[in-house]
């Protein structure tokens, strides 16, 4: 028990520390591809440090929702980091929260931020919130379909079971259903974390914003929390992508120190690869017109349906 709690703490710490680095790495890759030098991988950390030293501004007329949202956002991200198998399958919370709960917690954060944006009562806040919720409405179904595809073989939505199942039966890892599910999950991650082509994280044109529009009123430490949380959300999603589809390297429940070290190295490597791949992809894409975004998401939903159908109709090789 103590060990598993320690592992959970390690996971949280890893994500907490690693998330800004992931963002930094992605920006850096992009900068390099654009022929720039870039701010360096540590730039987000510097920004965070600065934000926590800045003045906190509460807009007039906002309520506790505005003030609490960053905490909910980051809290949910931390909780997810503790639940999912980042380095080990033996999270103490694994039996308390499965994939469904993780997805739910993720959206809990999104909802908190969307409400905070509405709470400000600005036009841009409402706009961002509205757009974000539209995205959520289409993303959530896709995630559940992916989840379903993944849990079909192991008959469980618990993440350790899913990852463990793949470890135990590697032949299943590359079935048609899983490939489709992987593709749709990638699209979902892009949409949910506000990356190109759904949303441009570097934009400062309000009319094209989604995520940024919701955070326009945040300043100082609260903004820091929000940014940090965004990074963490991206990171945990990448971790999920990595460890659900390619769980190799993850330490089993109750691991030894070496296993943990290997697992840390593995996840860092996997997330780095995925983040870079994402970033490379982004570089080649222009932002979609807002009203074409649903088409993309519908496409991913369709992929999800196909994935489910493929998995339920075509028995996997190892079965």
């Amino acid at each position: 028990m103590a060990l598993s709690i320690a592992l959970a703490a390690l996971q949280v710490l890893l994500v907490l520390v690693g998330a800004p680095l992931v963002i930094g790495a992605m920006r850096q890759v992009r900068a390099r591809l654009e022929g720039r030098r870039g701010g360096g991988v540590g730039q987000p950390w510097r920004d965070l440090r600065k934000l926590f030293r800045k003045q906190q501004i509460t807009p007039e007329g906002t309520t506790v929702v505005f003030r609490a949202a960053p905490f909910v956002l980051l809290g949910s991200a931390l909780l997810i980091a503790a639940i999912i198998p980042v380095v080990s399958l033996g999270s103490p919370l694994d039996s308390s929260g499965d994939f469904v709960a993780v997805v739910g917690l993720l959206f809990l954060g999104t909802v908190a931020l969307a409400l905070a944006a509405l709470d400000t009562g600005t036009a841009f806040g409402g706009m961002g919130s509205s757009r974000q919720m539209t995205v959520v409405a289409l993303v959530e179904p896709t995630i559940l379909l992916v989840l379903f595809t993944l849990s079909l073989r192991v008959h469980s939505a618990n993440l350790a079971e899913i990852a463990g199942g793949t470890l135990a039966n590697p032949a299943q890892a590359f079935s048609l259903g899983r490939v489709l599910a992987f593709a749709s999950l990638v699209i979902v991650i892009i949409a949910e974390t506000g990356r190109l082509p759904v949303d441009n994280p570097a934009t400062h044109l309000e009319l094209t914003m989604i995520h940024e529009a919701m955070t326009l009123e945040y300043a100082g430490p609260r903004l820091g929390l929000v940014e940090w949380a965004s990074g963490m959300r991206l990171t945990v999603l990448l971790v999920l992508l990595a460890n659900l589809f390619f769980p190799w390297g993850v330490a089993p429940g109750g691991p030894g120190l070496v296993q943990v070290l290997i697992a840390v190295a593995a996840i860092v490597a996997k997330v780095a690869v995925l983040a870079m791949a994402l970033s490379v992809g982004e570089t080649f894409l222009a932002k979609l017109r807002l009203f074409r975004v649903p088409e993309l998401l519908a496409g991913s939903f369709l992929l999800g349906i196909l994935a489910v159908t493929a998995s339920s109709f075509l028995p996997a090789a190892g079965r």
Binding site: A31, E34, G35, R36, R37, G38, G39, G40, Q43, R46, D47, K50, K54, I57, T203, H204, L205, E206, M209, E212, T215, L216, E217, Y218, A219, L223
Partner: peptide, 21 residues
């Protein structure tokens, strides 16, 4: 732009004065 790349020195344009230094 890519040629001068002010971002490499830690500067970034943002959308809201709330975010700005």
């Amino acid at each position: 732009s890519s040629v001068y790349d002010a971002e490499q020195f830690g500067a970034r344009l943002v959308a809201s004065p709330r975010h700005a230094d």
